[in-house]
């Protein structure tokens, strides 16, 4: 039997390699900044720091569970066990060299985290999970290299901006101006939570990553950086998937050894 090693993603260029890296849970995401637990809770806006988690149903131990062989073996996450509400964090990633794209987010969330619900749109990625599980995940998402304070936004609604040009400070457009560039510190401060409710005090999410650095970390193909056209391996892989799906739709018996 041939030895199987997870490979995550095809492709030969830098964005493909970065995609592969981010999808691989063995790769530890590089920590670039520290956001306190309480500040993160404030930005997410689901509860006040220190407040107990609200629940959507009683703890599983109290309710008991129906007789189901899968429930018998699948361990619930801590949040599920406690009956936490399912809440969200949502990111918008600019087309201008944000570290990860929406689909890369979804793929890596599912290879790295357990019990998460992820959706993808062109400009935003909602991530939902039991509240205490969510906070744990969110911490890594904001503190590490996959977040940039200028080209990524934490936004619940009115996410418009991923495809817009950057402002004079290099920040991605946000109609609510949830975050502002602090000229004194050179950092980006959140002044509103993700849904747009003003915060009591600004919360810094750090300095924007220089573009040269972003270009190294990015998983985005761009004609002015790493052109998709140059990743012949990835293009050919995608053409292959399309071809096989097409032929299989006509007659699955025709797909043999190709």
């Amino acid at each position: 039997m041939p030895e199987y090693k997870p490979q995550y993603y095809p492709g030969s260029t830098l964005p493909s390699k970065n995609r592969r890296k981010y999808l691989d849970p063995e790769y530890k995401l590089q920590k670039l900044r520290t956001i306190s637990d309480d500040d993160l809770v404030r930005i997410m806006g689901h509860r006040v720091p220190g407040e107990a988690y609200k629940s959507t149903h009683p703890p599983l131990e109290e309710t008991g569970e129906p007789a189901c062989p899968i429930r018998e073996i699948v361990t619930p996450t801590p949040g599920a066990k406690a009956g936490d509400r399912i809440r969200y964090i949502q990111f918008t990633d600019s087309v201008y060299y944000a570290p990860v794209t929406p689909y890369v987010r979804a793929w890596m969330y599912h290879t790295r985290y357990r019990g998460v619900d992820v959706g993808v749109l062109s400009g935003r990625v909602p991530l939902e999970a039991r509240e205490r599980d969510l906070e744990k995940v969110a911490k890594e998402l904001v503190e590490t290299e996959i977040f940039d304070s200028a080209r990524c936004g934490i936004r619940g609604a009115t996410v418009h901006g991923h495809a817009l040009r950057l402002d004079e400070n290099g920040l991605m457009f946000d109609a609510y101006r949830r975050y502002l560039f602090n000229k004194k510190t050179g950092e980006v401060d959140y002044v509103k939570d993700q849904i747009g409710v003003p915060l009591d005090k600004p919360i810094s999410v750090g300095k924007p990553i220089p573009e040269t650095e972003l270009r190294k970390r990015t998983s985005e193909f761009r004609i002015d950086g790493n052109a998709f056209r140059d990743d012949k391996e990835l293009i050919s892989w995608m053409q292959r998937i399309h071809m096989l799906r097409t032929i299989a739709g006509f007659d699955p018996e025709k797909v043999k050894g190709i």
Binding site: L60, I70, R71, V74, T75, P76, T77, G79, A80, I86, A106, W107, H110, R114, G115, V116, D117, V118, G119, V120, E128, A129, R130, D133
Partner: peptide, 17 residues
Amino acid sequence: TCGAARAMQHTPSVFIY
């Protein structure tokens, strides 16, 4: 996925990803 979360809403995400 849904077993760990004890929640049904994850199904479409599972289908895609």
